[in-house]
Amino acid sequence: MANKAAATVSNPNGFADLLAKMSEAASESTLRQAAVAGARVIHKEVQLRAPVGPVPHIRSGKLYPAGTLKKSIALYHDDDKSSVKKALQVYGVTIGRDAFYGLMVEEGHDFSGAVAKHAKRTEFGTSKVPAHPFFRPAVDAKSREALDAMTAVMQQKLNEAKNG
């Protein structure tokens, strides 16, 4: 006597529907939401670590109050590096135009005149100009939390697809 097995399929389209929902869960919108969730974690930490000078400064006749650098930290979507076809969405944290000097602070420049014009751009400062890095330490401190935030968004979308 041969062993036989029988199966009954009560929802023949169920698997196809689940695959369609999972595909939707990995859409460009979901990827953007996940990427921006991670970028927000880094953005917040960069803002917390951005130094605030003791006095305002003037450039080309415009007054920049103390704290302009901290207020100018912004999120952006990198259209050039992002791709729907490659399932890649890239967000970044940058310094706005009002804080044109941000990279100089990050890389070891000072704003005491000639030193600012001639100091080398280096993460570690120079013999005359100390560095005040705040981007790299922020990324180092919060990269795991950023990854967790992105993972949470993706997990939520997958759960919604599975249960919805």
Score class of each variant (00 low, 15 high):
Lys162Asn: 10
Asp17Pro: 01
Asp79Met: 15
Gln89Ile: 13
Ser10Ala: 11
His57Glu: 04
Ala66His: 09
Tyr76Leu: 08
Arg49Thr: 03
Ser72Asp: 07
Asp79Tyr: 13
Lys86Glu: 12
Ala7Pro: 00
Ala141Val: 04
Asp98His: 07
Gly113Trp: 08
Glu24Arg: 14
Gly61Tyr: 11
Asp140Asn: 13
Glu106Gln: 08
Gly38Phe: 08
Thr122Met: 05
Asp78Arg: 14
Lys128Arg: 14
Thr68Ala: 09
Glu160Phe: 00
Lys120Tyr: 06
Gly102Leu: 02
Arg59Ile: 13
Phe124Thr: 02
Val90Asn: 03
Ala116Arg: 00
Asp148Ile: 04
Met1Lys: 14
Val52Gly: 01
Leu48Pro: 07
Val41Met: 00
Gly164Trp: 01
Asn11Tyr: 11
Ala87Leu: 08
Asn3Pro: 09
Gln47Ala: 06
Ser27Phe: 09
Thr151Val: 15
Pro65Arg: 08
Ser27Val: 09
Phe135Asp: 01
Pro12Arg: 11
Gly61Arg: 10
Met22Phe: 12
Ser112Arg: 14
Thr151Tyr: 06
His118Arg: 11
Ala50Ser: 13
Ala16Ser: 13
Ala116Asn: 07
Ser127Arg: 10
Met104His: 12
Glu160Tyr: 01
Lys86Ala: 15
Ala87Pro: 02
Arg121Glu: 04
Gly92Lys: 08
Val55Glu: 15
Val90Ala: 01
Ser127Phe: 01
Val52Asn: 03
Met104Leu: 13
Glu106Val: 01
Leu48Trp: 06
Leu48Cys: 05
Gly92Leu: 06
Arg49Val: 01
Gly67Ala: 05
Arg59Pro: 07
Val93Arg: 02
Thr122Val: 03
Asp78Gln: 11
Leu69Ser: 02
Asp148Leu: 06
Pro137Met: 06
Asp98Gln: 12
Gly61Thr: 11
Ser23Cys: 03
Ser72Met: 03
Leu63Phe: 12
Pro130His: 01
Val55Cys: 00
Gln89Cys: 04
Asp148Val: 07
Val9Trp: 11
Ala25Val: 08
Asp79Val: 12
Tyr91Gln: 02
Asn11Cys: 03
Lys44Ser: 11
Lys71Phe: 05
Asp98Lys: 14
Arg136Glu: 09
Ala114Gln: 15
Gly67Arg: 05
Ala20Pro: 05
Thr94Met: 08
Tyr64Met: 11
Ser27Lys: 10
Arg121Cys: 00
Ile73Trp: 10
Leu63Trp: 08
Leu18Asn: 04
Leu31Ala: 08
Asp17Gly: 12
Ser10Gln: 12
His132Tyr: 04
His118Leu: 07
Glu106Pro: 03
Val46Phe: 02
Arg136Leu: 11
His77Ala: 12
Val93Lys: 00
Gln156His: 13
Tyr64Pro: 06
Arg32Asn: 13
Glu28Asn: 11
Gly38Asn: 00
Asn159Val: 12
Lys70Asn: 04
Ser82Cys: 05
Pro51Val: 10
Ala146Gln: 00
Ser29Ala: 15
Pro133Asn: 03
Tyr76Met: 07
Val36Glu: 14
Gln156Gly: 14
Pro12Glu: 09
Arg59Phe: 13
Lys86Gln: 13
Ile95His: 03
Glu24Ile: 09
Glu123Phe: 12
Val52Arg: 04
Ser112Trp: 02
Ala149Ser: 06
Pro133Gln: 07
Met1Tyr: 11
Val55Gln: 14
Val115Thr: 06
Asp78Ile: 11
Pro51Cys: 05
Arg40Tyr: 02
Leu48Lys: 15
Ile58Asn: 07
Thr94Trp: 07
Phe15Ile: 13
